[in-house]
């Protein structure tokens, strides 16, 4: 049964990295499409567009982070071997869910906001500051989910 415990933890890590990463991929994709449209008109905006396109990318990083935390926790990344029972494995799986779910949806939502903000700087490049803040409002919820995932992972006792 030890194996099942570890595999549940691995499933948690896979979900965290996979879903949060997918959310970011879709979000960055949406923002990128919008950015390419702007750059056909004004290639000089590349820097600003890239900045805004990168914003929805953080969810993927948070997912990766959580995944690493999870497998580090069950001793898959070297260190001392840990014995993980099924309940502990389930705990790790559940702890990964906040960032998996919130990462997926907030990545997409943030991508849309970024795309809209890219449209905004096309017309008003002087308002870049505001354009950077709006997507960050969405990211808050990914940050909160990451926080919860980490606290949950941290509180599972082995």
């Amino acid at each position: 049964m030890d194996q099942l415990g570890i595999m549940l933890a691995v499933l948690g890590a896979a979900l965290a990295a996979g879903f949060a990463g997918s959310g970011s991929a879709i979000g960055v994709g949406i923002a990128g499409e919008s950015g390419a449209g702007i750059m056909t008109e004004d290639p000089g905006k590349f820097g600003l567009v890239l900045l805004l396109q990168a914003l929805p990318g953080t969810q993927g990083i948070y997912g990766l982070l959580t995944a690493f935390f999870a497998i580090l926790k069950v001793g898959l990344l070297g260190g001392d071997a840990v014995s993980v029972n099924v309940w502990q494995g389930l705990g790790v799986l559940f702890a990964c869910l906040p960032i998996a779910i919130a990462g997926f949806y907030s990545g997409i939502a943030q991508g849309k906001t970024s795309a809209a903000c890219i449209q905004m700087i096309a017309k008003r490049p002087e308002e870049t500051g505001k354009a950077v803040i709006l997507p960050a409002m969405v990211e808050t919820y990914a940050v909160l989910a990451l926080l919860m995932s980490i606290i949950l992972l941290n509180s599972i006792q082995f």
Partner: peptide
């Protein structure tokens, strides 16, 4: 303001990875 913890942790954790 809990983001202060979350982002700080994220930096250390990515560096650790």
């Amino acid at each position: 303001y809990s983001r202060l913890l979350a982002l700080g942790l994220a930096t250390s954790a990515i560096a650790m990875i």
